[in-house]
Design a protein around this nucleic acid. Structure first.
Length: 149
DNA sequence: GCCAACGTTGGC
DNA sequence: GCCAACGTTGGC
């Protein structure tokens, strides 16, 4: 089973929202590298739920992949902010996966994450990183869970 | 194929 | 609000 990290802005959709929704399609990913990672996700994979653009930013919980990649319907919806006029149902460009909450963690701030030796190579902490879907090693994942448990 | 311009992300 | 980093677009 693979391990991942997913970023979301809590003002838009935070961990509490996922708990309330029970499960949710991870919409709005419009970056090819992130999309390709989502295509590698399998049902049962676990992902760290990270709050970006927050005060402070950090980890809020764990979620699980409950449905693999399939076309993100918001790309076809002209009223959606994620609408992509260059995409079509015949040849969809963007996928989503469906996630469900697994376990809330004690909040781990970005500052705390930066102090963890297990994460020195984690892409999340790399300078200028903007990727919203990031693969984690088992060690990285386990270290984050331990820090928030 | 190059690269300048532009838009977005995300920490601060 | 600022700005660094990076991805995408489009003219050539």
């Amino acid at each position: 089973m693979a391990r991942w990290l997913l970023k979301s802005e809590p003002d838009v959709f935070g961990y509490d929202d996922l708990v309330a929704a029970k499960r949710e399609g991870w919409d709005g990913v419009r970056n090819y590298q992130a999309r390709n990672f989502m295509r590698e996700m399998a049902v049962g994979d676990l992902a760290i739920f990270y709050h970006s653009n927050a005060t402070p930013p950090g980890v809020a919980g764990i979620c699980k992949i409950v449905k693999g990649a399939e076309p993100d319907p918001t790309q076809f919806d002209p009223k959606s902010k994620y609408f992509d006029p260059k995409s079509s149902p015949d040849d969809p460009r963007w996928d989503w996966v469906t996630v469900a909450p697994k376990k809330r963690l004690r909040f781990i701030s970005l500052d705390q994450l930066r102090e963890m030796p297990e994460l020195v190579e984690c892409r999340l902490l790399a300078r200028g990183n903007r990727l919203s879907v990031i693969p984690l090693t088992d060690d990285e994942f386990d270290a984050i869970v331990a820090a928030g448990s």
